[in-house]
């Protein structure tokens, strides 16, 4: 137990220090949402139609960005060998690392989400809802993404494989999350999509570390 917890705190620090990659997804999310009005036109009606969907896509793709290095760095420098060789379960390592990187990246993503939301002509009173949705959605994207990250850990330029493996797993979160954002934008019923997005996220949290652990054990074999 002390093993997984110490890995969690270490990763939390590493995510924002020198080699950490938490800034990139946040920048990507902000950039992708900011340039949307230039592509779809800045008319209020256009943005109301495209805005929530584009924002949700940007969140999903931003969450994919750090996945390539999630386990790869530890595999390359021998840290995974050291973890596995000391008898600790790979499930705990996968869970600790994914959770730490989600907290380090998911929270900043959720904080800037309402700013982008208002920029895309979303109603400001839904801001709190957008924060909650972004937190839950990024959790789902990170945990499902960790499966692809583990499968591609042993590969050079495994990013394409991660996208191929992960994007189908993103689909339920994509559908429910976007439905929730559109409901919030038009003042419709958002409780059901929120719960379904939450269910997808919980499913990801509960299952992904087992799948990722299996892939990691194969990667170090």
């Amino acid at each position: 137990m002390s093993g997984s917890f110490s890995v969690f705190t270490r990763e939390l620090k590493l995510a924002w220090s020198g080699g950490g990659g938490a800034a990139l997804p946040v920048g990507f999310f902000a950039a992708a949402s900011s340039i949307t009005p230039f592509a779809v036109g800045n008319g209020v009606e256009n943005l109301k139609i495209a805005g929530p969907g584009v924002m949700w896509i940007a969140l999903a793709l931003a969450s994919l960005l750090p996945m390539e290095r999630l386990f790869q760095a530890d595999l390359e420098d021998g840290t995974l060998d050291a973890y596995a060789g000391s008898g600790i379960g790979m499930e705990g390592i996968a869970l600790a690392k994914t959770l730490a990187h989600w907290i380090a990246t998911g929270i900043p993503l959720a904080i800037i989400a309402p700013v982008l939301w208002i920029m895309l002509q979303g109603p400001p009173e839904a801001s709190l809802f957008v924060i909650v949705f972004s937190l839950i959605g990024s959790a789902a994207f990170f945990f499902f993404g960790s499966i692809g990250a583990a499968l591609a850990a042993g590969m050079r330029r495994g990013g394409l494989l991660i996208a191929l493996v992960t994007l189908p797993l993103y689909v339920p979160t994509m559908i429910f999350g976007a439905a929730g954002l559109y409901a919030a934008a038009s003042g419709g019923e958002w409780a059901a999509p929120l719960m379904l997005t939450g269910a997808a996220a919980l499913f990801g949290v509960a299952t992904s570390s087992f799948a990722a652990a299996m892939a990691l054990r194969t990667a170090i074999d």
Binding site: R10, S17, G18, D77, D81, A82
Partner: peptide, 10 residues
Amino acid sequence: GHLDAVKPSE
């Protein structure tokens, strides 16, 4: 192992 498990930024 022959890799030292040393993190460059820590």
